[in-house]
């Protein structure tokens, strides 16, 4: 069953077509990759999915619910979480508060009898998972990018999303950090979270992804398992062609 379905998504910025009739489906409980050269439209696709951009054409479904016209915050309530390529942390808050505020927002969606204690329990649980305990009270303006990526992940994971959009989580991380990150993704996936991942770090993509989509100039040019994509001549051409102009 597909968790996330995009059908015929087209978006234009003036005369430029950023996404051209994109159809794709992310299978439930999978880790799916989205790759493509710079400017292919990957982040735009995430912005459309999370509701920061409205598509000119097409529909977006999460499970079976159409959410094309929903505001970003309603999509979050439906279980869609995301991180950003350019970090979007809350620098006036500490690491723990960044996660706490997300948990508190979730607490307001549902009427739970044990509000405060369940918030703090879920925050502690996620901090343990991501290993952020040791820097809990630090300001997020003072932590290196690798850690900041983890804070963004923890912040959305604490809301218990069923579908996670991760936009280049490995950029700015060193090799060890990326490996640990991959482990966390696998744990989350084993707990039932579907993950949709934009990434340039091919080792991470090849390590964790079940399936990969390839985007180039706003058009989907290939999809398949990691092996298929690695050997796909169209994909190789797109990347090399991208370099040559």
């Amino acid at each position: 069953m597909s968790e996330l379905t995009l059908a015929g998504i087209t978006i234009r910025f003036g005369g430029h077509v950023a996404l051209n009739n994109v159809h794709l489906a992310v299978e439930s409980n999978s880790i799916t990759g989205l790759i493509g050269p710079n400017g292919a439209g990957k982040t735009t696709l995430f912005n459309v999915t999370s509701g920061l951009l409205k598509p000119n054409e097409g529909t977006i479904r999460l499970n079976d619910q159409v959410m094309t016209d929903l505001s970003p915050y309603r999509r979050a309530k439906l279980g869609l979480g995301r991180t950003f390529q350019r970090l979007e942390l809350f620098p006036s808050l500490s690491v723990e508060e960044n996660i706490q505020v997300a948990a508190e927002i979730r607490g307001e969606w549902f009427r739970s009898s044990n509000g405060a204690s369940s918030v703090s329990a879920s925050v502690q649980q996620v901090m343990k998972l991501t290993g952020l305990n040791s820097i809990a009270s630090k300001s997020v303006a003072e932590i290196p990018t690798g850690k900041a990526r983890l804070v963004e992940l923890a912040r959305t994971v604490v809301q218990g999303p069923s579908m996670l959009l991760l936009d280049e989580p490995a950029s700015g991380q060193n090799e060890n950090e990326t490996e640990e990150f991959a482990q966390i993704l696998k744990i989350l996936n084993s707990e039932g979270v579907t993950i949709f991942l934009v990434e340039h770090d091919m080792s991470l993509v090849m390590d964790v992804c079940d399936k990969v989509f390839v985007l180039d100039f706003g058009t989907l040019i290939a999809d398949g398992s990691t092996e298929e994509i690695q050997n796909n001549p169209v994909v190789i051409d797109a990347y090399l062609g991208g370099i040559n102009g």
């Binding site: 999370s50 509701g51 920061l52 505001s71 970003p72 915050y73 309603r74 999509r75 979050a76 309530k77 869609l80 979480g81 995301r82 950003f84 979007e88 942390l89 809350f90 505020v101 997300a102 927002i105 979730r106 969606w109 963004e152 912040r155 959305t156 809301q159």
Partner: peptide
């Protein structure tokens, strides 16, 4: 942007 996607 992050507040919106976190459901605020």
């Amino acid at each position: 942007a992050a507040s919106a996607t976190l459901g605020l």
